[in-house]
């Protein structure tokens, strides 16, 4: 490998300098960038589509809410079998052969969705509602097999459910205490009380939205709204923003992998994509040390455009 010749060897006019006011340049850049930012802010504002609440979800699509709640109680939701860090399920655990950081890390944000999402809020809200207290008691006293039969039958009936005045009704059947529990949970949700009960953890101040977000994500309503806003994974969602605003466009490469094989057809895509991006980030950082990557600028002489004044003056000097 031949090293760079010194400036003197290259006969470069390194001693030739021009006046340069660093602070003035920064000041001009500050002013110009502020004008541009002010212009965008004043004429285009910024995206702020209101957040979805349990209340708005249950009011807009009560059947989806009740179906999801029934699945949570039955242990049939995505969260129920997710795996670490929420529980010991396996449904969403990703690995590459024996390599599974998700399993190794274990459960650190425990979510017991039948109790956290349904039973505990109902018990907290039961008060003098003896009907509800009896229903919860009957449900908890039933065998797991009996509970499963109720849930399956109710889930099937919900496919033909009718909504009237925000209430969900299904055909008659043997659903045990589940319809009454679901009806009360729906009432709690529609009044907004469930939003608070899902956050409540014997503390006044709350900032952790893990439980309500997991609950909402198990339903179909949130995903439907995301689909309308072009935010789903197959729509380059991670780099998009609501409306026509630019989102995190700098995540284009990260998002790209989810659109192409083999990443778009495997169940461990997240792990593969993250590892790919870690490797690419390390490559970016280590470009100066990697033969080939560090030589590309010479092969694609964009530098001759960037320093065209220098090369022009050098050519004139050589003549």
């Amino acid at each position: 490998m031949i090293t760079q010749p010194t400036p003197a060897q290259r006969d470069e006019p390194v001693a030739r300098t021009i006046p340069y006011d660093l602070l003035k340049e920064i000041a001009i850049a500050m002013v110009v960038s502020l004008v541009v930012i002010l212009g965008f802010a004043m004429f285009l504002s910024s995206p702020d589509v209101p957040s979805v609440t349990i209340q708005s979800w249950s009011a807009a699509d009560p059947t989806d809410f009740v179906t999801t709640a029934n699945d949570e109680l039955a242990g049939a939701s995505t969260t129920a079998d997710y795996g670490p860090p929420y529980n010991n399920g396996t449904g969403s655990v990703q690995s590459i052969g024996p390599i599974s950081p998700q399993s190794w890390a274990g459960v650190h944000a425990n979510v017991d969705q039948p109790h956290d999402f349904v039973i505990n809020p109902l018990k907290q809200a039961a008060g003098n509602d003896s009907e509800l207290t009896t229903a919860i008691g009957a449900y908890e006293a039933a065998s797991a097999d009996q509970q499963g039969k109720w849930h399956d039958a109710y889930a099937k009936a919900l496919q033909d459910a009718k909504v009237s005045n925000g209430q969900v009704t299904v055909a008659s059947g043997d659903y045990g205490p589940i319809p009454l529990m679901m009806s009360r949970l729906l009432q709690l949700a529609q009044t907004g009380a469930l939003d608070g009960l899902l956050l409540s953890n014997n503390h006044f101040y709350q900032t952790d939205y893990t439980k309500p977000l997991l609950f909402m994500n198990d339903g179909g309503y949130l995903g439907g709204l995301a689909q309308d806003q072009r935010l789903t994974g197959t729509q380059w969602g991670m780099m998009n923003e609501t409306g026509l605003y630019p989102g995190q466009t700098w995540l284009w490469l990260y998002t790209l992998w989810y659109q192409v094989p083999p990443f778009n057809a495997v169940s461990n895509a997240d792990l593969l994509v993250v590892l790919t991006m870690v490797i690419l980030t390390l490559l970016l950082m280590l470009v100066p040390l990697i033969p080939g990557l560090r030589d590309i600028p010479r092969w694609i002489p964009i530098y001759r455009v960037i320093w065209r004044g220098y090369y022009a003056s050098r050519s004139q000097g050589l003549k």
Binding site: P101, Q102, D208, D270, L271, L275
Partner: peptide, 16 residues
């Protein structure tokens, strides 16, 4: 899902 897949979701909880 991406954060959880690399085992840091319990410590860097994007839902929090």
């Amino acid at each position: 899902d991406a954060v959880n897949s690399i085992g840091v979701g319990g410590f860097f909880n994007v839902l929090n």
